[in-house]
Computed example of a mutant assay.
Amino acid sequence: MSITRKSFSLQQIIYRLIGAANQEARAALESEPDKPGRFPVQVRPDTRAFLEAYAKTWGGSIASVAGAILDGVAMTQMHGAEAAMRGTVERLSLLIEEHDLSYPAAAEILTRFGITLADLSSPDALRGKLTAPRLESIAQEFCVKYDWLAGKSSTMTSGELHMWYKAADKAAEILWTGKHSGEDVKLILVTGASSNLEAKTEDGLAARHMPHVLPVIERRRALPGGEFFTRYELWEEGRWSYWRARHYLKLVVFFAQKCHIHVIGYRIDDDAYDHLVAGKVLCGSLFKHRNVTWYPDDYVPYAGRPPAKDPQEWATIESSDDYHWTFRRFNEILSEMPTLSADQT
């Protein structure tokens, strides 16, 4: 009988040795947690020159610099992966809290990704389930960036590109599909508190003073037990002061109104708006208990009545050859729309 011998590369051997050493180090730390950390170290001349230079720059001793470097290496080797996965679990917990979900409700959402309530109650079990494909699926479900959830980036969200600008028909299809998927859909247009939405030109305006608008799609669905799962899909921001961007935003608002999707406008603190656009905050807590502060639907016709604001620009949009195809596509989508019940309108 022949014996198959498994061969290992040098890299695999090194990884195995490091793993064994890390395991032994953890065991030693548990058995002697208070063992003194002072011991003599002999280094090469170039290493000593390196340590002396850093000690001089930092204003510390050679021993403190060497200790910091060694501590960093040890922490990375002994706790790096564990710490990273612990951070991923914490970010998932943050998502659950930001969406105002109980853990049973969160388990209802995550069960189709193979994560149970028992997993959520045990960080060790949960860490074992958070593979890359699962994290990707969870990130998509909660409308956050995979790299953030996996601990590779500090950017939580980003606006999806090519969703409305010169693509109002695409936005209409997404809104229509969402409307009839069983979710309650809202179109939210977010802007900064200091934005001047009356600015119709960028002449003489510095970039920081140009009013920007961030479209956000809110999707809300009921869960067993009476809870709701609300997620926010960010689209790319646009400049309200740029006429073409403003036209396309108005077209999207017009379609949303036609298919009975609620359209609301939020003004938020300028710093909060910048953080939202940069993906540094999540919408859940930012939008909680927020009142409507402007009305995008004032800029489009409703129930046969002309727009309450700037009706002349809407007349220009309706008569422009640039948008004839868009209006035709809107009508095609609306003609496919099933009859709405009273509670959907």
Rank of each mutant, 00 (worst) to 15 (best):
R38P: 00
I13Q: 12
W164C: 05
L340E: 15
D269H: 03
E236Y: 00
S9C: 06
C143Y: 07
A106V: 05
D298E: 04
G19F: 01
K145S: 10
A66L: 07
A25I: 07
P311H: 07
T111N: 11
Q312N: 08
R86N: 15
E136W: 00
N291A: 14
E332I: 08
H275R: 15
K35C: 11
E332D: 15
Y323R: 05
E108R: 02
E313Y: 01
A206K: 12
L205F: 07
Q23K: 11
E336A: 13
I3R: 04
I138S: 04
L101Q: 07
D321W: 03
L214G: 02
A49D: 14
M85G: 01
W325L: 09
V213S: 06
V263Q: 06
R127Q: 13
Y248T: 10
K166M: 15
L205H: 07
L286T: 09
F142E: 06
K6I: 15
K56A: 15
S153F: 02
A105D: 09
Y299R: 08
I268C: 05
E236G: 06
E173R: 13
W325G: 00
G279E: 05
D184G: 00
E183T: 04
P211M: 05
V190F: 00
Q23H: 10
E202D: 08
S335H: 14
V252Q: 00
E141D: 11
E332G: 08
E237G: 06
P45D: 09
M85L: 15
Q344G: 00
S241W: 00
K6F: 04
K309N: 10
F228N: 14
F330D: 09
E24V: 07
A193Y: 08
I109G: 02
S137K: 14
G182K: 03
W58P: 00
F229P: 01
S9V: 05
D321F: 02
K250Q: 15
D100S: 13
L214F: 04
K170N: 01
L214I: 05
S2H: 12
H209M: 07
S61L: 10
V190P: 01
H99G: 05
P306G: 01
V263M: 06
T57S: 11
